[in-house]
Structures are given as C-alpha cells and as structure tokens.
Design a protein around this nucleic acid. Sequence first.
RNA 1: CUCCCGUUCGUCUAGCUCGGUCCAGGACACUGGGUUUUCAUCCCAGCAACAGGGGUUCAAAUCCCCUACGGGAGGCCA
Length: 439
Amino acid sequence: MSQVRVRFAPSPTGFFHIGSARTALFNWLYARHAEGVFILRIEDTDKERNTEEAKQILFQGMKWLGLNWDEGPEVGGDNGPYYQSERTEIYRSHLEQLQKIDRAYEKDGAIYFKITGEPQVIEDAVRGRVERTEEKDFVIFRSDGSPVFHFVNVVDDITMGITHVIRGEDHLSNTSKHTELIKAFRAELPQYAHIPLLLKQQGPGKMSKRDQGSLIEEYERRYFLADAVRNYLCLLGWSPKDDREILPIDEIIQLFDLTGINKNNARFDEKKLSFINTDYLRALPLETFSWLCRPVLNESKIIPEDVDEDFLQDVLRICREKVRSIEELPGYCAYFFTDEYSINEKAKQKIFKKGDPLARLNEILSSIETLDDFSEEILEKTVGSLTVTQNVSSGEYIHPTRLAVSGTNVGPGFYAMLQVLGKEKVLCRIKKFLAETET
RNA sequence: CUCCCGUUCGUCUAGCUCGGUCCAGGACACUGGGUUUUCAUCCCAGCAACAGGGGUUCAAAUCCCCUACGGGAGGCCA
C-alpha cells in the first residue's frame, strides 16, 4: 500500500473562502487519518491577483485553522516547486510529450488536446461510479503561451504523486477531461472524491465570496475560536454517525473517511457555528480565555496594557458564562475597568417605575459600608437580612444597585459582581448615583 | 439547450450498503414551562421531515423506473 498523498491547490485571490477552507480541511483530515502527506500547491498563474498579500491571507487562514502542510511554500519538499508560476518548464516538457504522441495540435494560436471520445469512468469515493464522455477537444495552452487549469492541474498531480484528489463537486463534470489527459500521459488515475458544495445561507446557489459570513478571515477577526470553526466545517458534509457534533479534532481524524462523506450540498448556518463557538469558549481554561480576551479588550480601549491579571480573570470568570462570543465582551464588562459608564435610561425608568429605589439604595449603602468581608456570601447574607427587616423582596435592592454600579440592568451574578468590583468602587458608585439622582 | 450530481424536520444530519427493530433518532433555530436578582446558562416539554407518482415485495426512508425540484459543468476562468 503506497502512501496517501493529497493536495490543496488554491489560487491566491486575496481572501480565504469558507468553501475552500472546507476543501482544504477535508484533504488535511484524510491525510492525517491515513498518515499520509498533505501538500499545499499554489495555483498562481493569474498574475493580476497573485500578490504577496493574497498569499499571506491564504497561509494565515490555513495556519489559523491548524491545517499544517507537509510539502509546499515555506516548508519545501521533494516535489517542488509548489508555485505553478515556477513550473513552466515542467508544463513545456509535458506538452512535448503530448505532441510526440500526436495528442496536441495548434489552432488559432492556441494548443488543443485531442480527446478520444471514449466514455470516461470515474470511480468516485463519494459518488460511486460516474460516467461521462468528453465531446470536444479543449484548449491546454492559450495563444499567449500560458497553460490552462485542466492541464496544469493534471500535470502537477501526476508529477507530485497525488494519490487522492479531494475537491468540490463543481469539478466533477470536468473530471473526464482530466482522466483523458492522465491516460494520455500513461499515468495512473488517482482516487477521486468529489465533496458536496456549500450553499449560501439564504437564497439559491453556492456560497460565494460576496456572501455574508463566507470568509475565514472574518471569523478570525471576530475572535471566533479556530477549533470551533474547524469543528463546524467538519460537520458540513460529514458526521461521526453517532449523534455527536462537538468532538476533538484527534477523534475526527480517527473517524474521518472518504466513504463517510455526504453526497448532497450543505447549507451554511452561522447560528450553528455560533452555538459551537460558544460551547468551545466555555470549555476553555480561564487562563486561556483571559489570554484570548486581553488583546480584544485592549484594542477596544477597555483595559490598559498592564491590567492586573487576577482582576481581569475575576471579571472574565463571572462574565464568560453570560456572553456568547468574545466580540460581545467589551460591551458587556467595560464598567469593571472604568468609572466613566453611562446610566441606561430605559433600564432606569423601568426600575424607578415602582417601589422606592432610592430608599433601598440608602439602606443597602449603610449596610455594606460597615462590612469588613466584602465576599459574595456575606453580601448575600447582608441583603437577605435587609429584606427581612424592611419586608421587601431582594430584587428591590438588587436592581437599583446593579444600575448604580454598572449603569445597566443586565450583567453577571449580582453578588459576584459586587465582590469583584470591590467595596470601595461599589460604595463610591452608589453615592455618586444617589447624588446625581436625588434632585 | 446538453451532460453530470443530488433530494429525510426551516437548517446540519442519523438511518439507506445487508428492506421489517423507524407511525423515522440527534443537534441548531423556534415556541412553551421550570430554576434564577437581571441577562445568559441549565433542565423539561413542544413544533417539525422520508419531494411526488408508479412498480418489486408479505413488508420500502431503505431496491427499480418516471416526473418535479435543487445544484454543478459545458471558457483561450480556476
């Protein structure tokens, strides 16, 4: 049994499309599953779009998703070069081979490949046996001398020893062109696996770069966890068949197989991605979560560079279970780090509609002023005894106090929040609120 | 227009290879209830599908055929 060699062959377009990422992922999964080789080959024949920046976006996206390649740019390998733009000689010599056996001819300045017209049988790991007959000779070199996709793709696969071609179903119809070429070169056909396409969230057709949520870099920018995005992508066209959905990548690698891939197209669903992302977020060790949040909060000017790590973790510990994504966090916890928060008027109106919030605030203020121990437990006990002596519900203390110290009516657990804020800030904020409100 | 691929809850899917255990299971979303100081979580419940028609068979989501619908390809794009 020879070693499995698969490749992902994108062209640098300036963005990393989620469909491409899914194709890369399936190739990577299969390579890792079969303990084979995953090759990255850059189809950069289009000079216009082939910029350094475009390549970096691609590499960055791959790395972010953890799709490391064994041969290709940056890592090298014995089957290079891995940029098509550097393989001109290889294409030339292969063209000569075709010309020698009279399978290539010139017409209108372009070079055509002569087809046999025989039915092509494609044994596809996903779709089974597919037959198709190629009917027209097709261009393999343009009149400007550059080779076209069908030609370079096949030549590269042959010369790089690719054993399994895993790609989108949009290539299925053209595969007959490829098998004709491969046979002309007297090379062995690879095992094909045409994977279903990703359809846009709404409306007809496959996902394109213009669709909402279709770019990998967008999820990175929005602080999604790469593991979560990758996990979700695995679920589009594949499943472990045992009702599990969230599972570690090692296990996915173990279970993944070409025959387990679905035939029908899958619609991308950002809500499910978000759900999985939230799940991953909550499973993170607090230190890791904090390490991830630091730059986010720093960028949005909520925390200074030198914020106290223990305090930050205290805040994150009580806030994490309340937010669904890291991008919500800045708006959720800013008041822990600054006194410059505004009072939400709507929340205030709601709270002041009934009862006597100001009286309650004065009561809670004088009760907690004397506390030496400002812990969650003691605070809860203190408010508890107030409700007894004043004969009111705890909510009558909690709501106005939350508003006074955070400016809003939503937030983490009340007592935990007070404890994390600390006695000094809490007293100060209540007093300030009272002073501003009692007019 | 021609060719290729597909069709299970709104969405992702399990089941289909080897027909009965499926009046079809899980998850997201949605709806309702419970827990809770808010919000969120969590727990419970509900809603909701075998595209349609014909076969084959004692029996079909599962096998066969047709139709419809969806997707893709048919470039000197990739």
